[in-house]
Every structure is written in structure tokens, then in C-alpha cells.
Nucleic acid binder design. Structure first.
Lengths: 343, 343
DNA sequence: TTACCTTGTGCAATCGATTGCACAAGGTAG
DNA sequence: CTACCTTGTGCAATCGATTGCACAAGGTAA
């Protein structure tokens, strides 16, 4: 059953030439005559020859492998990015090794070390929430390998990046709510000071400012942006009798929590309170009413990351520090669209 | 910046021994003296030595890589399975190469060939919907590599499998609806004759039979189980004035379509029509009302697949043909739970 | 005819880890 | 003292593809 794979030596001895000749014939070296080349190709096909990439990798130092590190694999956002990277990589005959950090720095470090040992040709990664220093990432760069960060990035590393314009996304979302006539817009953000959430908060604040709407700090809630956080914040708004006519949350889960509590309290959406989330999680189109949200184009992010990666590989002059910023899109659904627009 | 990696030769020359001795010391060969071993380990640490897995792979024929082939990466079900496999594999110091087939046989074949060239130690895969023969999978087995199929499997290949008990899941779902007092239960199934859907249909039919409920073929609809199919089937039920008091669909998407149409027609859920889906897609808990569905435990499926895989690797006697059947769980949510149970 | 170039192929080292066999030093039994 | 065993290392081949250099055969120009 275990039919041995043919090697270039098998082809060589079949034809009475040496392995060098076969190797050159297969790689298109011009010093090989047409006759020999034809014979080699024919024999290769006959013997069902497939190159041993391991041997090739050992010699050339190139494994055709990309190490991909994400916080959580089974989140729509991340798996879509994997898909995007995959699409580009496979076309160029690269394979993608996937691993997850569970947001933990120690897992990241272990995975990156494993990637180095597996001699990947480079790494595409998103930084875990609990990561506090970047030495383990720096090691990748020190090894001379391309590193591309996406979504959760850092300016501490001089390397390629793909992010969305979080500020712009939040700004668009908030302006949209303002245009729907909302004036008391609550915002749910993250407790931890992570870049993307800070930017979303800034976008929210600037949008209010630009429209001369007073900022009420009591309407800003910091939590973990999970469903339960959204529920808690919303309950607090209601219990404290803080007037509000919209919620813009930095995550779809948090805004979903708001929707649940509002419905329980028979507060109508969007008429009394309009809702906009962030992420475009698949569930947002299935809620009642469907949730307005911000699309981050994760597949495109993945493709962009892969493109920077391959640019880095090809360029002789070190690692690309290219930064691609993807424009987010506001998806307006019923949760924020009032029947009569009064803008 | 590109600090060369230390090799066993570097350690050897540092200590005035040969690479063989270093190799043996590192692998725990008993012929090496304690002194030498200690010195080697110390020098290895000092030089920051990490073994080159490519070289090792070339010599040993083992790459510590698992090729994983799924129809679509960014579907919760599949990404959760990847996560399960990943968890088990990483602990055993294996890495997972992920690739998607987009349900197409030609992509499957190309990916499997790429896996073989990358010299993966085996393959874990789910068969694409459009795949009609299995020669490309057979090649994996012919190469003597372990192959484990999950969810979408076939009896044409003698190899390990992990599936859920689709029949049982459908049976449970249908019985649950019967217990809620439903008697006219519609079923949405797949047009294509795929095993898992046939079994779900059988479970539905047997549950009805076992409860002496007449089977009405007009209540069974075959489509593609997408949202739009669910909408179409439901509209047809209503337009043709076929009485029905429940829908059990073989996919959450299809049942979601039913929910939308029912709500548009002001038909109350679950009182007039109860709903149960299949898959436990993340969105099902966020709909209004939340959807009852069948949990397939995808992470556990992934872990089980990995376990069979490693069993196969370890056993000297050929590929494991173990088959693990996972018991699905009925998740009862508001879409099917009537206020007063009349069972 | 000589010096030199072109074309096509072979030789052998290389990538780094692994391993069967050889062998030296020292110990033990008879 | 001899035969043999044990312990610890070294030597060299191996995995398969790649590549710098050598070199033979034939051609060309002077």
C-alpha cells in the first residue's frame, strides 16, 4: 500500500543521467537541452513524480508555509480573515498554518516559537487582548521573517499592518444616529485601553462635537463589551432614569444586550431608542429588528494582509512596513432607521 | 538582524565533540554520559539552540503537520471543529495546516495533493457537497497516511470517522414538537441526497410514525436549506393553505426563513407554529424568539477527530477505522416551547 | 592549427538531524 | 595474561533537492 514516492534520482537512473540534470530540467534551467528536458518531463510523469518539499525546504530555506496566529479561530471575524489569507496564499502555492492564542501572551509566545521551529516563511497575526509586551513578535522580525499584524496591532513593532479605520467607523455610526434625530446617544466601550476601542470612542465624541451635541460622560459605559455588559449598562441607564434615545456600542454583542433589555422593558426600537453596533457579526441580520452595524470587511482584511506579506517576501530590502487602512462601511438596518427621517 | 540559528554542529564544535554526540545527548540516548549530556544541554541553552524541524522531517519522514480540509472556514460549525482539532494537536506539538474546498471536488483534489507534497503526517477532512468520487482521498490512504473524516463522510473509504447521530437529533427534535402538541409538522430537507440530510429526514419520519401521526408528504420540502429556501417553503405552506403547526428544518438558516415569513404574516411563534432548527448556529440564540435547535458539539467533534488521528499514528497496524458517533443535544428555546405543555 | 567560447552534463558539497557500525579505553572473569 | 564485555564517542551515510565548479565535445575566429 505504501507506494514509495519517486525522487529525482529515480528519474535520473531511469534515463541514465544524474540527479543534477533532472533537477535542472525540472526547474527550467536553460543549460539543459530540449531533448533531455522532454525526456525528464516524460519520465517524471510516468513515475508520478512529485517534488519533496521538505528536502527542497531544507536546501532552500523556504517552506512555503505562513504561520497565522489569531486570538480565537471560531469567531466569524477571525475565521473570515483566515479565509481571506488562505485564498491569496493558496493561489501562490503557499499553505497556512493556523493557531490560536486564546488572547494569552504565553500561548502567543509558544505558538510563535513553534512557527519558527517549523521554519515558516513568515507570520500574519493579531495581538491577544492580554498581551502586554512584544518581544515574542520582535523575535520573528529579528529572524528576518516578514510579520504582518491585522486588526489588533501595535506601533511598538516596525512591521506591516492592516487595520480598519475605527475612528471613521464610529464617526459614521454616530453621525447616522444624529441624522436620525438622536441627541442623547449612549456609548458602550471597553474597559481595557485597547487602541481600537479608544479610536471608536474618539470617533463617537468627535461626531457629537461636530454636530454641537453636548457630551454627557454619564452616557459612556466601559465594560467587556459582551452581551451581559450590554445588558448591565442598559439596565443602569434605565434604572438611573438617564434619558437616552440611542446606543452605539463598540461591539455587536454589547448592543445585542441592549436590545434584549429594551425589548423586555417594552421600549420600542428604533423609535424610542435606536441601536448601532460594530463588527457585523452574522447574527446581526437575524435579530428583530435587524441590527445596524459597521462592516469591517474581514475577508478583504485577510487578503490585504496576505498582499503585504508577499510584498515583504519579494522585496529584497527588508520587511515591509506598509500599513493598509480599510474603510469600514455603515450597514443601516431597522434598529436605527426611523420611519420618517427628520434630518 | 538575521542572527543565524545555532545547529547541533555549533554546539558540537563549542564542546569539541561531534554532532552525533550532541544529537544523542539531546534525544536522551542512554549511551551518552551524564557529564556530556549536561554540557550539551548547557551549551544548547547558551547558544539559544532550537532544532530545525525541516532537517528532522527530512530524515525521519515526520513533519508534525496535520492537513485539515474543510468546505468553508468561516462557518461557525467548521471553525469550531478546527479549534477542537487545534487544541488537541498543539498539546502534542503538532501544527494544523488549514485549507478550504469551497465544496468543490477539484479544490479538494488540489489541496490534498498539496498536503501530500508538504509531507503532512495525515489528513482530517470533511467532504464537499459537490464531491462525487473519492479517489483523491484514497490517495492519502494509499500513501499510508491516516485520514479521519468528520460530519460529511462516506462509507466508500475505509478510514476513521466522526459523525453526529443525525437520525437521533432529528428524532429528538420531532418528538419534542409532538410533545408540545404539534400534529402537522412540516420538514425542510435538502434536495441533494446527502447522507446527513437523509438521516435527519428519517428521524423525523420515524418519530411521527412512533407517535401514530400520519405522514403528509405535502409537508416535506426539499431545497438548499438556505434562508431563502426556508422563506419559499413557508410561503408555499401558507399560500396553499396547508394547515401546519410546526416546522422542523434540517438547518438553522432554513428555519430562520420560516420565522421571518411567519412574523411578516403575524403568525405567532410558537403558539400557532413552533420552530426547531439544526446546527446551533450562533445566531439562533439572538433571534426573537430564540430558536430551538440541535447542538452538534463541533469542538468535541474536532477533538474526537484528533484523537482518532493520533490513535492511527501510534498504532503500528495500519489506519484506524474507528467510528465515533456523537450524541446531539436538543436545545429548547422559546421558538418551540408552548406556555402550557399538554403532553 | 591554435586559442577560446558555447553548450550540456556530471561531480560533489550542502542544508541539519539521525543512526548503524566501528572502535578505543577501561573493567572483569577465568 | 588473555578473551570478552561495557561504556562513551566518532565516522560516515542518509533523507531529496539544489548549485558552484569542472570538464568534455564541438564550434568559431584568427
Amino acid at each position: 500500500m505504501n507506494q514509495k514516492k519517486a525522487t529525482i534520482h529515480d528519474i535520473a537512473s531511469e534515463l541514465g543521467v544524474t540527479a543534477s540534470t533532472v533537477s535542472r530540467a525540472l526547474s527550467g534551467n536553460p543549460r539543459i537541452s530540449q531533448n533531455t528536458r522532454r525526456a525528464v518531463l516524460k519520465t517524471a510523469k510516468a513515475l508520478n513524480y512529485e517534488p519533496n518539499q521538505i528536502a527542497s525546504a531544507l536546501r532552500s530555506g523556504k517552506t512555503q508555509l505562513i504561520g497565522m496566529l489569531v486570538p480565537i479561530i471560531n469567531r466569524s471575524f477571525f475565521s473570515s480573515i483566515i479565509r481571506g489569507v488562505e485564498d491569496v496564499a493558496n493561489k501562490l502555492d503557499y499553505r497556512v498554518i493556523v493557531s490560536q492564542s486564546d488572547e494569552k501572551q504565553e500561548n502567543e509566545a509558544a505558538t510563535l516559537k513553534a512557527f519558527l521551529n517549523a521554519r515558516v516563511d513568515g507570520v500574519i497575526a493579531s495581538i491577544g487582548k492580554q498581551t502586554r509586551d512584544f518581544d515574542h513578535y520582535q523575535e520573528i522580525l529579528d529572524s528576518g521573517l516578514p510579520l504582518v499584524l491585522f486588526d489588533r496591532t501595535t506601533s511598538d513593532l516596525q512591521t506591516g499592518q492592516v487595520v480598519i479605520d475605527d475612528y471613521e467607523g464610529a464617526y459614521k455610526a454616530t453621525v447616522h444616529l444624529i441624522e436620525q434625530g438622536c441627541r442623547r446617544i449612549a456609548h458602550f466601550t471597553a474597559r481595557r485601553k485597547i487602541d481600537i476601542y479608544k479610536k471608536r470612542c474618539l470617533g463617537y465624541l468627535d461626531a457629537l462635537r461636530d454636530h454641537n451635541i453636548p457630551i454627557d460622560k454619564k452616557l459612556i459605559f466601559a465594560g467587556d463589551l459582551q452581551l451581559s455588559d450590554g445588558r448591565r449598562h442598559t439596565a443602569e441607564l434605565i434604572n438611573k432614569q438617564l434619558p437616552f434615545d440611542a446606543v452605539f456600542a463598540a461591539s455587536d454583542y454589547a448592543v445585542m444586550g441592549a436590545m434584549q433589555v429594551l425589548k423586555e422593558k417594552k421600549i420600542s426600537i428604533p423609535d424610542q431608542v435606536a441601536l448601532v453596533g460594530f463588527l457585523n457579526e452574522p447574527f446581526t441580520s437575524f435579530t428583530d429588528p435587524p441590527l445596524s452595524t459597521i462592516n469591517q470587511f474581514p475577508m478583504e482584511m485577510g487578503k490585504a494582509a496576505a498582499r503585504i506579506f508577499f510584498d515583504s517576501l519579494e522585496s529584497e530590502r527588508g520587511i515591509s512596513e506598509q500599513k493598509i487602512v480599510i474603510e469600514p462601511e455603515l450597514i443601516v438596518r431597522a434598529s436605527s432607521e426611523k420611519r420618517k427621517t427628520n434630518s
